[in-house]
Amino acid sequence: MSVKYCLIRQASPGVKGGGAYKYYARACERKKVSLNQVADMLASRSTLSRADIIANLVGLVDLIPQLLLDNRTVELGELGTFSLNLKSQASDEPRTDGFRLIKSANISFRPSPYLKDAVKFPEYAKSARSAY
């Protein structure tokens, strides 16, 4: 397995008129894998049926938001950790209506060290679609 990449030409960000152009490698030719495809792959590696795996994955997708909204951090072992982060405006002093400062809530995912190590040293292959 190798990660396909393309070189893209991009102007310097924040420079009026674009500034000097440089070339950057970006992952390309990505293909999405659906829940059903993941279930098929997992079923071929285990004794569980495809239906059992789909039921568990769908249950997990339903359960994680509930746990996050219950002020919990969800740690899934070698997969990683899900948590809820709040974005807020600043206030000069404490307020009794502090919830009004909150702009949004976002889900954060931190991969486990195992998951990070698993993709640390991939092989690379230039995409045939790369213009450069």
Rank of each mutant, 00 (worst) to 15 (best):
F109M: 12
Q66Y: 04
S34L: 00
R26F: 10
F82I: 03
C28L: 07
R129D: 15
G59R: 13
T73M: 10
S104V: 06
D92L: 04
L86N: 01
V3P: 08
V33D: 07
E29D: 15
K103I: 07
G17M: 02
G14Q: 14
V58G: 07
S112N: 06
A39N: 11
R30P: 06
L69G: 10
K31T: 08
S12H: 06
Y23T: 07
F121D: 15
E75F: 03
K116P: 00
V61I: 06
I107W: 13
A51F: 00
S112D: 08
S44L: 01
P113H: 07
A39R: 09
V33Y: 06
G17W: 01
D70R: 05
G80V: 01
L76W: 04
V74P: 05
C6D: 14
A118E: 15
S49Q: 11
Y124N: 05
A11D: 14
D92K: 06
S12E: 12
M1H: 03
L76V: 06
Y24P: 01
S127L: 04
Y124R: 08
D52T: 07
N36V: 00
A11C: 08
L115M: 11
K87W: 14
L57Y: 10
D52L: 09
V74C: 15
I102E: 02
A131L: 10
S2Q: 13
G59A: 07
V3R: 11
Y23G: 04
K31C: 09
L48M: 11
Q66M: 05
R100I: 00
R9F: 05
N106C: 04
D40E: 14
K32E: 15
D117M: 02
L7Q: 09
R30S: 14
S88G: 05
V74G: 14
Q10W: 03
K120T: 11
S12F: 00
K103P: 02
K103Q: 09
T81G: 13
D62R: 04
L42S: 12
F82Q: 02
L101Y: 01
V119C: 15
A118P: 05
L7G: 10
T73S: 14
V119K: 00
P13F: 04
Y23S: 10
S12W: 00
N71K: 12
N36T: 10
P65D: 13
V58Q: 15
S49M: 10
L35A: 08
G59E: 13
L68Y: 02
C6M: 05
L84F: 08
A25D: 04
Y23F: 11
R100F: 05
L48Q: 11
R26E: 07
S112V: 03
N36P: 02
A105D: 06
D70Y: 00
E75D: 11
M1Q: 06
T73Q: 10
I53A: 14
E78Y: 05
A25P: 12
L101C: 05
S104I: 08
A43V: 01
S104T: 12
S12R: 11
D117L: 03
L86H: 01
A39G: 11
R50S: 11
I64G: 15
Y132N: 14
Q37L: 02
L48Y: 11
A90F: 01
T73E: 14
P65M: 06
S130R: 02
G14M: 04
A105T: 08
V119R: 02
V3E: 09
K4V: 03
D92F: 01
K4A: 13
A131H: 06
Y114P: 00
V3W: 09
D40N: 08
F109S: 13
G80C: 00
R72A: 12
L69V: 06
N36D: 15
P94I: 00
I53V: 12
